[in-house]
Structures are given as structure tokens and as C-alpha cells.
Design a protein around this nucleic acid. Structure first.
Ligand code: FES
Ligand code: FES
Lengths: 158, 158
DNA sequence: CTTAAATAGTACTAAAAGAGTACTGTTTAT
DNA sequence: ATAAACAGTACTCTTTTAGTACTATTTAAG
């Protein structure tokens, strides 16, 4: 429905918080508490982010996660790529080749790919650094967790 | 997963074909055959498009559908609005107010709304007229139907 | 060298969304 | 009167998403 998945949304939320304190190590449990989500969910998100080298992990006692680069070098597009399963693109045919039998004769595929390009550029243009400090046009507030059933649960449970 | 729904994709496909012959009346059955989809599905899409005044319908014998305005005045954004259920926006909180308890303190909501704006503008900038004739950067081919299980079915069945 | 606090990985279950179909009603030219 | 076409509704099946559970591995600290 032209939405990013909730996990991706959670990812931006968690990373945005981490970007406020780059270099600092956070345990998944701490982050979950801060952000108001369930610990297993945050854990899942961080593991995926780690596989894509957006965060680095330290195992063992007193381990945790930290950003793997400065916030300015992590874009929303990279977060989306890390947490969405499918390849980027608004339609299946325009996202990856070979999914449509009539690709070669497709009249509108090129247009969708152009649209995809614009959308992607919009996501690339926003970095974590932009997320913590307000953008030119926008005004920002404090910290904030995410809505939905599990965030409420996560909020109630310790 | 950052995709438009298949129905929306079908909508662009059907409308693009109709845009090749503006003012002409097409029955849902004919369009289904042309485009290679199931008749009930195309019917469903056209009904939704009609409710949003993108096509006008003529009932009764020899009835059918035609574009309600010139192709240049119908944007992809309008098609998306007509066929997607949810309000426009990449995240739930940024799409509509009141879905998140912590909206007032949200640090990244403004940024998502800015991203939404860019994405929406990209969709508004492409019209049906652009879809039939290639855009500056792209080259086009002939006609083409859509992939997937039901398109194959629609293709096999008369 | 044992323990406890962490991450890593995998797999499962349940809920939501999406897609397609069926059926019944209404309109209208012939 | 009939048949072709749109209108509306509601239902079922499938796919995707979300969340959780469980087990293994790592490592600082005592
Ligand atoms: S819709 Fe399949 S290639 Fe264009
Ligand atoms: S995530 Fe809910 S308002 Fe920002």
C-alpha cells in the first residue's frame, strides 16, 4: 500500500536515537526501553541492520550495538534496503527484471523506473543526521516512540 | 514493502491503454482481453476509478468506460489515490494524524512528511499522456500486459 | 573456570492485507 | 422482453507482515 514495513519504520526510529550519541554502545534491551518497543523486535531489527553494516555489534558481556559510521553517512535509503525484503521499486516489474513475460513490449515500464529513481533519490537525500536535527523546512520536537499494538505492549511490559 | 498494490498497477495499465484512444468507449470485457487480465478484476478496478471520476461510465447495452478528462490531466498520483485504500504516506504516522500517541513529541515525523512530499510530487509529475508517449529519458515499445498468476489465467481464458 | 549478560541464528505462529471471484441488482438499446 | 453492460457487496484464498520463542555463541568479571 505504498508504505514501508513497520520493521523499517522501527529501524529509522532506533537508528535516529542512536545517532544522537554516535560511538556509544547500546544494548538491544536498552534501546527497546528507550524507544518503547518490544525487546525481541528491536533485537531483530538490529540484527538485520548489522548484516548490512549499518551498525556494528559487540558480543559478549557489556556488548551492544553502535553506528558503524557517522550519522551523515547513513541514508534512509540504506535503512530501507537493509530492512525491506524485496528489491527497491514501486511495482514488481519495474523493480527487477524477468518477472513479467511481456517486459520487452512494456510501454510503461520505463516510466515506472523513472518514478522509482525519483523516489529513491528522495530517500537517499535524507540522512540520519538530518533526522536528529530538523531539516530546513521542518520543525522538530523531542523523542518519540511508534504507535501500534506492540509498541503499547512494549511500553507496558518492562 | 514500498510497493503500490497490484490493483493500482492494473489501473495504470488499463488507463494507459485507454489513453491511446481518448473519448472512445471500452467495455470492461474488452479492456480485460486487451490487457490480459481477468474480466472481474478489470471490472473492479474500473468501478473504483469511476468513483473517483477518473473514468466516466455509460450503463446499459453498448455501455462502457471512457476517460473523464484528457490524458494529460490524469496523473499517476490520482490513480494511486483512487486505488490504494490507505491515505498517502510512507509511514502510518506520517500519513494521517492521530495514529501515534507520541506524535507531538515525534522527532522524525516532519522528516517523513517531507519525504512523502517529494514522493508524491514525483507521482504527480507523470501523467497518462507521459505514459503512452515515452518520457524524455526513456524509450518505449508496444503494448504489454502484466505478470503474475491471474494475468496468465486471464490470458488463457477468453 | 564458572557465570551471567549480551548478540546470532533459526523457526514458528498469528494477524493483517491483498487479490481474485461470485452473486445479485440496475440500466438501457434493440 | 431480452441481453449486454455497469454497480455494489460480500466472501474466500493466498501472501505478507509482525511478533515471539528457543537455542547457540561470545566474552568480561568474579
Ligand atoms: S508491467 Fe510487466 S514489464 Fe511492465
Ligand atoms: S512515529 Fe508516530 S508520530 Fe512519529
Amino acid at each position: 500500500m505504498l508504505r514501508i514495513s513497520k520493521l523499517t519504520d522501527y529501524g529509522t526510529l532506533v537508528l535516529t536515537h542512536m545517532a544522537s550519541f554516535p560511538d556509544r554502545l547500546f544494548s538491544a534491551t536498552d534501546l527497546a526501553a528507550i524507544v518503547g518497543l518490544g525487546a525481541p523486535t528491536v533485537s531483530k531489527v538490529l540484527k538485520s541492520l548489522g548484516r548490512h553494516d549499518l551498525v556494528r555489534s559487540v558480543r559478549g558481556l557489556h556488548g551492544g550495538y553502535a553506528l558503524s559510521r557517522p550519522p551523515a553517512q547513513i541514508s534512509v535509503a540504506q535503512i530501507v534496503d537493509a530492512l525491506e525484503e524485496q528489491p527497491f521499486g514501486l511495482t514488481e516489474c519495474s523493480a527487477s527484471a524477468g518477472t513479467c513475460d511481456f517486459e520487452s513490449d512494456c510501454r510503461i515500464r520505463a516510466n515506472w523506473q523513472r518514478i522509482n529513481g525519483v523516489v529513491r533519490r528522495a530517500l537517499e537525500d535524507v540522512s540520519l543526521a538530518d533526522m536528529v536535527s530538523p531539516l530546513p523546512v521542518a520543525q522538530a520536537g523531542g523523542a518519540r516512540p511508534i504507535a501500534g499494538p506492540q509498541s503499547i505492549k512494549g511500553r507496558i511490559a518492562p
